[in-house]
Design a protein around this nucleic acid. Structure first.
Lengths: 66, 66
DNA sequence: TCATAACGTAAAGCACACTTTACAAGAAGG
DNA sequence: CCTTCTTGTAAAGTGTGCTTTACGTTATGA
């Protein structure tokens, strides 16, 4: 699943650690999400959507775009 | 995390097994989601949103409604 | 040159997401 | 009564999501 985390983080001028702090997760989790190692849990996806003020669907893309 | 799965399934007149078939998961997974045993993965949440034609946020509610 | 910040990555460990098989019980109809 | 459908639940097994600790690299600046 692709995502725009790195891009959105860049717009805020935040480091991975800063974003991790805002989301209450570890820096390694942010890095793993940005580098596509795995997808976030649904609760974490909700937090991310709220933090950036966007629907989950505009941040994450699972490719089934028919 | 609360969800409206049972309600939406009811509108379609589907059994848990029928919904499971539409989503390519086991009936037990549907039952676990409806009875709140755990939350779906993000990819499954995307599938559910597409199946019912709604954003993930209108089907699932993680309570941080501030 | 030395220190610090930022990023990528790895390993070990715990909890969760999902599977298959299986059993019990209520509803509905023959 | 008997069967069938539907739902709830359990146990064991596999893979994922996230953690902590830790190391190597690159860039920056005093």
């Amino acid at each position: 699943m692709k995502n725009r985390l790195k891009e959105l983080r860049g717009e805020k001028g935040w480091s991975q650690q800063a974003l991790a702090d805002h989301l209450d997760v570890s820096r390694q989790t942010i890095n793993a999400l940005e580098t596509g190692k795995y997808d976030p849990s649904l609760p974490l996806a909700f937090k991310i959507g709220r933090l950036f003020g966007q629907p989950i669907e505009t941040i994450f893309d699972d490719g089934e775009g028919v």
